[in-house]
């Protein structure tokens, strides 16, 4: 009986190592001396870090991705907070349809959505502008925000808002003084998840990012297509460490386990 649990434990440990294996490879290969990717890495050097960090086009793509993720997640925060409030606090015809529409972009194939957006922008809304790229991303970041805020909002009992009102607070004061402080965890986790989703999104950007707005994942995509060398692992190491830091922060603040299940 003991043996079975031990077997389970060892299997799970191996499974965890396998999960982390690509990350280990990325970190180690980044220090390779060779100009092609192989594992175990040949030699040891920091030259690919130097190449990556001095490549202006890479840095520019990271800059674009950060700006894009920031704008998309802020817009999602604004739009999502308003929408969540309506969806959680009111019952009205069409509510279920809107509710399922909001999460739909996450379940549908991103290539389909990307092709549709590209096709649509080539006929309407003035082509592949940065603002169109932003809204292409809002479509896939909004679901995270709405889901997180809706859960937080549903946990705020209506009686708290009613108490504030009957004590003399108007609707806006009530929202600002009572509702907002209580849904803050949902706001933060939703926005952070939206930020990560936008930053990591490759497919939508691949379709609708114009050459001036090349994002970091798209840049990586072209590296893989045309010159797969350790520089992309070098730069990815930084990005992965940054994402892990955000994940750790999320876990510290809210318990990642709960967030992951949303």
């Amino acid at each position: 009986m003991k043996i079975k649990l031990d077997l389970l434990k060892w299997y799970s440990l191996i499974r965890f190592v396998v999960t982390l294996l690509p990350l280990i490879i990325i970190f180690l290969s980044a220090f390779s001396e060779a100009s092609f990717l192989s594992f175990p890495p040949k030699g040891f050097s920091l030259k690919w870090f130097v190449v990556a960090l001095t490549d202006k086009s890479i840095l520019r793509s990271i800059q674009t991705s950060l700006l894009l993720a920031a704008v998309a997640s802020m817009l999602s925060l604004l739009i999502g907070t308003l929408a969540s409030y309506a969806l959680v606090r009111y019952r009205f015809p069409g509510r279920n349809i809107i509710d399922s529409f909001i999460t739909a972009p996450l379940t549908l194939p991103m290539v389909g959505l990307g092709l549709g957006l590209l096709f649509f922008f080539s006929s309407f809304l003035g082509g592949l502008s940065f603002i169109n790229l932003v809204f292409g991303h809002v479509i896939i970041t909004l679901p995270y925000v709405v889901r997180n805020i809706s859960i937080s909002l549903a946990a705020v009992d209506k009686s708290l808002e009613q108490s504030a009102m009957i004590l003399g607070a108007g609707p806006i004061t009530t929202f600002y003084k009572v509702t907002l402080p209580l849904i803050k965890p949902g706001l933060i986790s939703g926005t952070l998840m939206a930020f990560i989703a936008s930053f990591n999104n490759t497919t939508i950007s691949l379709f609708v990012a114009s050459p001036e707005n090349l994002t970091f994942p798209v840049k990586i995509f072209y590296f893989i297509e045309f010159f797969p060398d350790p520089r992309m692992f070098a730069i990815s190491s930084f990005v992965i460490i940054a994402s892990l830091a955000i994940m750790l922060a999320l876990d510290r603040i809210f318990g990642l386990y709960k967030i992951a299940l949303r």
Partner: peptide, 18 residues
Amino acid sequence: APHKRDIGLVFQNYALFP
């Protein structure tokens, strides 16, 4: 509107602002 009615209200779950 409720906030102009000057009424005191106590809920079953107390509804204290946490």
